[in-house]
Amino acid sequence: MRIGELATQAGTTPDTIRFYEKVGLIESRRLTNGSRDFPPETVAWLHYVRTAQALGFSHAEIARTGEELREAPDAAEALAALFQEKIRLIDARMSELAALRAELTTRVDTVGPQRSGETVRRP
């Protein structure tokens, strides 16, 4: 399948497909005239990539998880495990951000409003 047809079927642009190919998320073979040729299953994979991005997965995570899913005996179970791991990472990051917010709030209270000529106290 040529890049234009793939873009139409996947609901994306040829530039996006070229980018995904450049970062290693998809592969094509080159025809004798230099055009890219993609296998039909690339459409479903691109839908997965876009969904995974919307769920907060990075390109590296998508590439890694794609390999895990392809090799898993039960793709649904493997996908659920990947989602659970992502939830754990999000929870950890939320805890870190909450602690950072609390620290900033404490420092705002110790600094107080600034007036011209006043120096900011440092903790």
Results as ranks from 00 to 15, higher is better:
1 M>L: 06
2 R>W: 12
2 R>Q: 05
3 I>A: 01
4 G>Y: 08
5 E>D: 15
5 E>F: 02
7 A>C: 10
7 A>N: 02
7 A>L: 01
8 T>I: 09
8 T>R: 15
10 A>S: 11
11 G>C: 12
12 T>H: 12
12 T>A: 07
12 T>L: 15
12 T>P: 02
13 T>N: 11
13 T>Y: 06
15 D>A: 07
15 D>S: 12
15 D>G: 05
16 T>H: 04
16 T>D: 12
18 R>Y: 11
20 Y>C: 03
21 E>Y: 07
24 G>H: 10
24 G>N: 12
25 L>C: 07
25 L>G: 00
25 L>A: 00
25 L>D: 04
25 L>Y: 00
25 L>S: 02
27 E>M: 09
28 S>G: 08
28 S>C: 15
28 S>R: 04
29 R>G: 12
30 R>G: 07
30 R>C: 04
30 R>H: 06
31 L>Q: 14
32 T>A: 15
32 T>N: 15
33 N>T: 06
34 G>V: 14
35 S>D: 15
35 S>Y: 15
35 S>T: 14
35 S>L: 08
37 D>Y: 09
37 D>I: 07
38 F>M: 03
39 P>N: 13
39 P>G: 11
40 P>Q: 05
40 P>F: 09
41 E>G: 05
41 E>W: 05
41 E>I: 01
42 T>W: 03
43 V>E: 02
44 A>C: 00
44 A>F: 05
44 A>W: 01
46 L>T: 03
49 V>W: 03
51 T>R: 13
51 T>F: 13
51 T>H: 12
52 A>Q: 01
52 A>L: 11
53 Q>G: 11
54 A>R: 12
54 A>T: 10
55 L>K: 13
55 L>H: 08
56 G>S: 07
56 G>Q: 09
58 S>P: 10
58 S>I: 07
59 H>N: 15
60 A>M: 13
61 E>R: 11
61 E>H: 01
62 I>T: 07
63 A>W: 03
64 R>K: 14
65 T>V: 08
66 G>D: 04
67 E>Q: 13
67 E>G: 04
67 E>D: 11
71 E>S: 11
73 P>C: 03
73 P>L: 02
74 D>L: 00
75 A>C: 02
77 E>N: 00
77 E>W: 04
78 A>D: 05
79 L>Q: 03
79 L>G: 04
80 A>P: 00
81 A>C: 06
83 F>K: 12
83 F>G: 10
85 E>Y: 04
85 E>L: 08
85 E>N: 05
85 E>D: 14
85 E>C: 05
90 I>D: 14
90 I>W: 05
90 I>A: 13
93 R>S: 10
95 S>G: 06
95 S>L: 08
95 S>Y: 06
96 E>R: 08
96 E>W: 02
96 E>L: 05
97 L>N: 10
97 L>S: 10
99 A>C: 11
100 L>C: 10
100 L>Q: 15
100 L>D: 02
100 L>P: 03
101 R>W: 13
101 R>F: 05
101 R>P: 07
102 A>M: 10
102 A>T: 14
105 T>R: 13
105 T>D: 15
107 R>I: 10
107 R>V: 10
108 V>S: 09
111 V>N: 05
111 V>G: 00
112 G>S: 10
112 G>M: 14
112 G>R: 08
114 Q>D: 09
116 S>G: 12
117 G>V: 08
117 G>R: 10
119 T>M: 06
119 T>D: 13
120 V>L: 14
121 R>Q: 15
122 R>S: 09
123 P>L: 03
123 P>I: 07
123 P>H: 04
